[in-house]
Design a protein around this nucleic acid. Structure first.
Length: 944
RNA sequence: GCCGAAAUGGUGGAAUGGUAGACACGAGGGACUUAAAAUCCCUUGGGCAUAACGCCUGUGUGGGUUCGAGUCCCACUUUCGGUACCA
């Protein structure tokens, strides 16, 4: 009987559903293990073979852990809100809810065919009210919290209000948008509006007037990680800077903890490094510069305080508020013109065209060390959003300042001994400092002779002692902009009284997304939720029911923005622990049992987005006591991208004749992408090609050896390259087990690699072979009940060790190879041993669950192989009677010798030296030393 | 520019500092078959031999450490990711 994968897979997928094989419950008698995949956006294109890579790997791990006796949580869900779903809906002219559900159903169908052990009873969809209830709930808690820097945790905003009522801002060490200073009396004198505005400066979720990435084409603002090279990640539309009032999350408050936490988790060094760079901690100095002829002063931030004697000009960011106050009347026209010009340039233009621009303000700053007067300029190479939006320029030691100084003919003063600044600046933080003038105030302060490091420390000390500024740590990490002017997202649980934002009472949550006729965004940013009818709130924050009488006095406006894509994906792992709870995001019991994700699998492209937001969100919930672990994802594996392998045909120019690859160099040809599905092992199916498109119906071919050979290239998997391979097709042709095995066999999970269907036969053959070990032609089980032989035991225990180690190390490609080797060995031994094959089936069950269930059943078991026990490894079975060792001379292998397995070094050495072959190689040399590597090699070191 | 990862046959890829190329694909040869498919066996880094199944060479380049280096160290080249006027 043949291996009929179609029937087998169908049968077991149905049984798993019927018997709820993968349903998991908290069980205090078992150790928990939480495996999680980054949940997918259900996009319209469906899954291609690249998507399941991580799912298969984590599925194997989850099944393995279960066989090892763990209670394994392995859930799946959909990240259904956000731009991609809405863009797809707009493109197809349908309501996003309709398309999202369609896409989800399609995904589910595809996923089900691959045989994952997901507990679908725990599915979450971010767009369902029962789910986003808790997204809104978390937002409200962020609104009601501030961040205390001394305690390094979030605290209730009431604590801060009490502090203001008692001491004003005195003694405050908190995360804030800008440093405010007021007294108790000033606080008490504030009206409701002013108090609300003031508190926004501290809340973790706050309304802020900030420069945002505005994408007119998408009609919404975007977070920093959603913009790359000045265009939107989604769609590639231009993005401009715009000042808008937006909801923001004070992610920056957690900068230091996000940084420190990285040392406690098991993630790849590269992704940790990416996060470190994104957080961008930099230790520096803030210094105050007085403005000549006024009592005004301003602050700059620098990491190179040691270069204070090389400052030859100052630069302000065009958006800085200082520009207006420092521009002299004579310079006003010129400065205004410059500001106007920079405003018109988009981020993208600035990036492409990095020409040096700037304008003099007319003012001079005073160097606090020397009293020198320094011109103050404005230029767009200084950013308003980082540091203080003003810098001291040291052209000798900063390449940007250097370019500016050269362009505007400003002086350049070198401060490092022997540095050459004739062509470029000397940016390295090394060398011996020179050229310190005598500091007139202090007389003796000089940095000459110090290393740069020492000079920085000395300058910092001087600045602090003389109150010229302070030592300051800056972070590059910005607060996240949390509003989107779009339809398909979570509504904010916020309404407004007299323009003051109020939270909807907790018992009225969730605020459901209303149906609207027009959900398309507008270029001007009018939110689509404005089109909702019967969507009104009263003064107490209660929704007014449609049949109630509505008059203007009772209606209070509700927030019309929606939340961004990352809102729903930031705490979903907690929700899986307790997905049906209507009282809490996650119940205490479930949270304490499952704790956090032990193994998280997903793409590295989320390094600066989701993986930062989630960590922030979880830390916040941890501070409030809603999550028991500070870090959400203990171990992270980043699966590689699967690229496409495109095929080409070569058309001779201006003809409809196609020439085979190796003959194409003799002609003038144009390579054309051809659908990989009509190419097999790079040989084109000529008839299928003619049928593919009407224009090729009459195509003619120049063949080699009667075949048309296609060219190939590795490219991104995409429709336009005709290289998309769909998992359903593979499942149909070879079965899910073959697909699972082959995806793992392709190479290391973490590595990006091209998909190449060519090799899949090998895996399929292997499964057929395994089937053939069990059954004869009539489908009768041919295994015997004999006691296993020594050789059989050795072979299977080698496999137990290898596969166990490999799965723990996420090295699945080598374990697939190990299965093949073991099966070949058993085959060679003519092994038909039931006990041995039973263990083989358990070991392989994580990889090919359908086939193994079938074999398990054939072996006479009436339970699922999922509930079997991982075989115990016994090292004593690996022992061999004799061991082959390579004899080498000075590291060069020469001949093998066999020894008793328990031979000691002395015996081995003696046997080697007594061997007549040895003499041939030692002739004319002296034996200096004999190195014996157990079970491997005997190396004889020879000297003249 | 900066940060990170990598470079091994025709291809995907194996190798705790210890016989480089496991395993698989592809290719070549053979068996079975009227034939094909399927299946099985042999060969397969390069070179020289093949009368002795032995020798030489070989893991991007150049050095170094070591009895012994694909693996460790230094310098360089290339490729792929990420990031960028962050002061």
């Amino acid at each position: 009987m043949e291996y009929n994968f179609r029937d087998i897979e169908k049968k077991w997928q149905q049984k798993w559903v019927d018997q709820k094989t993968y349903q998991v419950k908290e069980d205090n008698d078992k150790k928990k293990f939480y495996v999680l995949n980054m949940f997918p956006y259900p996009s319209g294109a469906g899954l291609h073979v690249g998507h399941p890579l991580g799912y298969i790997a984590s599925d194997i791990y989850a099944r393995y852990k279960r066989l090892k006796g763990f209670n394994v949580l392995n859930p799946m869900g959909y990240d259904a809100y956000g731009l991609p779903a809405e863009q797809y809906a707009i493109q197809t002219g349908q309501h996003p809810e309709v398309t999202t559900n369609q896409n989800i159903n399609r995904y589910r169908e595809q996923l089900d065919k691959i045989g994952f052990c997901f507990d679908w009873d725990r599915e979450v969809r971010t767009c369902t009210p029962i789910y986003y209830h808790w997204t809104q709930w978390a937002f409200q808690h962020m609104f009601a919290s501030y961040y205390d820097l001394s305690q390094q945790k979030a605290l209730p905003i009431d604590t801060l209000i009490a502090h203001f009522a008692e001491k004003g801002t005195e003694g405050l060490n908190v995360a804030q948008s800008e440093e405010l200073s007021f007294t108790v009396d000033e606080w008490n004198a504030m009206d409701e509006q002013q108090k609300s505005d003031t508190l926004m400066n501290y809340r973790i979720a706050f309304l802020g007037e900030t420069m945002v990435n505005w994408c007119p084409k998408l009609g919404t603002v975007l977070a920093n990680d959603e913009v790359v090279d000045g265009v939107s990640v989604r769609g590639g539309y231009p993005v401009v800077q715009k000042k808008m009032r937006q909801w923001c999350l004070r992610v920056s408050a957690y900068s230091q903890r996000l940084l420190d936490g990285l040392d406690t988790i098991d993630w790849s060094e590269s992704i940790k490094e990416t996060q470190r760079n994104w957080i961008g901690r930099s230790e520096g100095t803030e210094m105050q510069f007085k403005v000549k002829g006024t009592d005004q002063s301003f602050t700059i931030f620098t990491t190179r305080a040691d270069t204070i004697f090389g400052v030859t000009f100052m630069v302000l960011a065009p958006e800085s508020e200082l520009v207006a106050s420092l521009t002299t009347p004579e310079q006003k026209a010129e400065v205004d013109a410059y500001l106007d010009a920079t405003k018109k340039r988009t981020e993208r233009e600035r990036m492409i065209d990095k020409k040096v621009t700037g304008v003099f303000t007319g003012s001079y700053a005073v160097n606090p060390f020397t009293g020198d007067e320094i011109p103050v300029w404005v230029s767009d190479y200084v950013l308003a959003g980082y540091g203080t939006g003003a810098i001291m320029a040291v052209p000798a030691h900063d390449s940007r300042d250097y370019a500016f100084a050269r362009h505007f003919n400003l002086p350049i003063i070198p401060l490092i001994e022997g540095c050459d600044i004739s062509e470029e600046s000397f940016d390295a933080k090394e060398g011996i400092v020179c050229n310190s003038p005598k500091c007139p105030k202090e007389g003796q302060f000089s940095l000459n002779g110090l290393t740069v490091k020492e000079a920085i420390a000395a300058t910092k000390k001087y600045v602090e002692e003389h109150k010229l500024g302070r030592v300051k740590v800056n972070y590059r990490l910005r607060d996240a902009i949390f509003s989107r002017q779009r339809y398909w997202g979570e509504p904010f649980p916020v309404y407004y009284k007299n323009g003051i934002p109020q939270m909807i009472p907790e018992e009225c949550l969730p605020i459901e997304l209303p149906a609207v006729d027009k959900f398309l965004p507008t270029e001007t940013g009018e939110p689509p939720l404005g089109n909702a009818t019967n969507w009104a709130w009263d003064e107490a924050g209660k929704q007014i029911v449609a049949n109630e009488k509505i008059d203007n006095k009772t209606v209070f406006p509700i927030e019309l923005y929606t939340m961004p894509g990352f809102a729903g994906s930031s705490a979903y792992y907690l929700r899986y622990m307790d997905p049906h709870n209507t009282e809490a995001l996650v119940g205490k019991k479930a949270d304490e049992y499952w704790q956090n994700v032990d193994l998280y699998v997903g793409g590295s492209e989320h390094a600066t987005g989701h993986l930062i937001y989630s960590r922030f969100w979880n830390k916040f919930l941890f501070d409030l006591g809603y999550s028991v672990k500070e870090e959400p994802f203990q171990k992270l594996i980043n699966q590689g991208m699967i690229q496409g392998r495109s095929n080409f045909v070569y058309r001779i120019k201006d003809t409809n004749t196609f020439v085979s690859l190796n003959l194409s160099k003799d002609y003038d040809v144009t390579p054309i992408h051809v659908d990989v599905n009509i190419v097999s092992n790079d040989i084109l199916d000529v008839e299928a090609f003619k049928a593919w498109r009407p224009e090729y119906a009459t195509a003619e071919f120049i063949l080699e050896d009667g075949k048309y050979v296609c060219g190939w290239a590795i490219e991104k998997m995409s429709k336009s390259m005709f290289n998309v391979v769909n998992p359903d097709m593979i499942v149909e042709k070879f079965g899910a087990d073959t697909l699972r095995m082959y995806e793992m066999f392709l190479g290391p999970v973490e590595q990006s690699k091209p998909w190449d269907t060519n090799g899949i036969d090998g895996c399929h053959r292997f499964l057929k072979k395994l089937w053939g070990m069990f059954f004869d032609r009539d489908g009768q089980l041919v295994l015997t009940d004999d006691a296993p032989t020594k050789d059989e035991l050795r072979s299977i225990h080698k496999l137990i060790k290898k596969v166990g180690d490999d799965i723990e190390n996420f090295s699945f490609n080598t374990s697939v190879a190990a299965f093949m080797i073991c099966l070949n060995e058993l085959n060679g031994l003519k092994s038909k041993n039931k006990q041995v094959m039973e263990q083989f089936v358990i070991l392989m069950a994580p990889f090919t669950p359908h086939l193994c269930e079938e074999l398990w059943e054939a072996l006479g078991h009436d339970t699922s192989v999922c509930d079997a026990q991982w075989p115990e490894f016994n090292e004593s079975f690996l022992k061999e009677d004799s061991v082959k060792m390579m004899i080498s001379f000075n590291g060069k292998a020469r001949f093998p010798m066999e020894f008793a397995a328990d031979a000691d070094n002395e015996t081995i050495e003696k046997a080697v030296m007594d061997n007549p072959q040895t003499a041939k190689y030692t002739e004319g040399f002296q034996v200096a030393k004999v190195i014996i590597v157990p079970k491997k090699i005997v190396n004889i070191v020879l000297k003249k």
